[in-house]
Design a protein around this nucleic acid. Structure first.
Lengths: 343, 343
DNA sequence: TAGCGTGTTTCAAACGTTTGCATTTGTTTG
DNA sequence: CAAACAAATGCAAACGTTTGAAACACGCTA
């Protein structure tokens, strides 16, 4: 018996006075091992709770069966849902997942990448941080021949696949919904504009107005970089105070939408009667606020699952395929905050 | 130049016509390497973006610098907050984190443990699933000499430390708060009773009543195993329909509290005037419902941080210390749903 | 010239596993 | 009885890194 640590093939070999090769083959049910030996090995392995050393295997096979994930924050409902999807898809194929959070910080994103590359993960799934515009650290990854897949936030000009939602269409649908609710002056609380995701939503917002013969007013597009409730609330306070006849708000995330809700409440503006509000992401709490918040739902779990599967596919084929973009559909969830029909 | 994959010490050695040992020592700034060699090695390593192979290091050092985490679900606000705390504490000490979610499932918890042990993580942090009562799979971990620390959900009878919140006190404080709000008939929507955590809350609930000379009525303690809104709502529907004069609810989690809120709303019972409600965990959305939900806040980030630090401490000392239990304080956050003073 | 010291470098083993090839055993056949 | 064969097992190298010990080249002294 060993004093500490897990048993190895060596330990078993020594105890049975046979060689490592034999033990290895016995455990994998190779032909050419006598039934007696096989039995003895398996019994001992079982008794000592033998588990193959994944480290040694990784070194020999040049393959860790780990996929790395770089994510802005784990603590957001959407992202943790994505992780859940990744986890399930990976585990199903015998892969483990190593997660690093960048905290939306460029430098830390670099550290995460370094750590994962050092760990020799078989591939990395990344959702770039808000701060990231220089892609050198990511370019190194593909240069080293490590598969990479982006999720949620599209990254262009790089030979890597992406799994995203149709942000343009989601925004378009949300704004059109507001128009159908008879909104005439719709404000867009936008996300950071350096993310393609944010620009797509602005485009969707603009197109929906255009297609419905409504003017696009630049002063109605307000950037909320951090996407916090406070930020959005302050922005709305200002808009309301300015006397603009706002009767609709499309926020680029649910926190911002709640901020708008709070601002409206403070100003005595009735939601949805005087102002219809819709958010983005359909966070868990969205249905619980009063009035329940309409939102554009993004299929977080599916994004994670699709991204992981795309990754596994790339890992398993030797030749690098052309990178692809997988676009998942969003869905407008109409709740009380924008529903004037039943009001 | 290599065709693919990351460069190794060998590649550098070959290109400079020196031995691996020299390269290794040059990179670590060992004495006894000529300045010229040192310079050449470092330059080449830099040029090729050399990163030490953590796998090889792990194998040699018998140490992976990875800590494993087994968590019921990543997609809950509380748990993702814990993960965030673990991540930060680990990263600060140069450790990576490998996360497996058990989905509150016993078998899958076993698979997670197996995967992590196979990966030879230096220690595991675990929050056992609701289903877990047999501890054999965890016992194997400590038998193998791998440090283990439990968090959030206490596990007794095992030589491992735990980081938990003072659930007894949290429940006690919550119930006493309701009593101070003049509640006379307080219901407890309890969690699953096989978790110590659930029992502690029942004890806290009971003690608070006792200490205030109020009767403990078994029919006022209703188990909500799954902790979902629907389950709690149904339970409350039944209690309300039975005609019991309930004027206070202490729920063992915020979802259940929301369920109670919904049931009250349906029944035309005013909150907090006719019924004061307080939840547990202080989820992010708790402050956003209407009326804003009172709750017992648990320091998720601190739990993660403390657990990780305890783990790192255990990893770094050769001799196994006596295991300890670290208890973090909860805090009653009073909001509209239980505040009758300003109402 | 042998001996010594110093500064620089290489050798070899180890970590745990797999696997092509070689070797050992035991049995059968010509 | 020797040769041929099959069955069972062992050897050794490889994956990338570190590190104690050994080796080398040099100049200096006795």
């Amino acid at each position: 018996m060993k004093k500490s640590g897990q048993v190895t093939i060596k330990d078993i070999a020594k105890e049975l006075n046979i060689s490592c090769s034999t033990v290895s083959r016995a455990l994998k049910d190779f032909p050419g091992i006598s039934p007696a030996t096989k039995k003895a090995v398996i019994e001992l392995a079982d008794k000592y709770n033998y588990r193959p050393n994944a480290i040694a295997l990784s070194l020999r096979n040049q393959k860790t069966n780990i996929i790395g994930v770089v994510i802005p924050e784990t603590v957001h409902f959407f992202f943790s849902t994505v992780i859940s999807g990744i986890e399930d898809a990976a585990m199903k194929e015998g892969y483990n997942v190593m997660i690093c959070q960048s905290n939306e910080n460029y430098d830390r994103e670099g550290d995460c990448i370094d750590a994962l590359m050092s760990a020799r993960v078989d591939g990395v799934l990344v959702c770039i941080s808000r701060e990231t515009s220089d892609l050198a650290h990511l370019q190194k990854v593909v240069n080293d021949g490590t598969p990479m897949v982006f999720f949620d936030r599209l990254v262009e000009g790089m030979n890597a696949s992406s799994v995203i939602v149709d942000d343009y269409q989601g925004a378009y649908d949300a704004v059109e919904h507001l128009i159908h609710q008879n909104c005439k002056n719709i404000v867009h609380l936008s996300g950071p504009e350096n993310l393609i995701i944010g620009r797509k939503r602005i485009e969707g917002y603009s197109s929906a107005l255009e297609d419905n013969n409504m003017p696009i007013r630049p002063e109605y597009i307000v950037e909320c970089r951090n996407g916090t409730q406070e930020e959005a609330e302050a922005a709305m306070d200002k808009l309301i105070a300015s006397g603009m006849p706002i009767d609709g708000v499309f926020a680029s995330n649910d926190m911002a939408a709640i901020g708008a809700l709070m601002a409206a409440r403070k100003a005595g503006i009735k939601v949805p009667e005087d102002m219809a509000i819709i958010g983005y992401s359909d966070w868990q709490f969205s249905r619980m606020v009063e009035p329940a918040l309409s939102s554009v739902s993004q299929p977080g779990y599916e994004i994670g699952k699709e991204a992981a599967n795309l990754m596994l596919q790339e890992i398993n084929q030797k030749e690098k395929q052309k990178s692809q973009i997988k676009i998942l559909d969003t869905e407008v969830i109409v709740r009380a905050s924008s529903n004037r029909n039943s009001a």
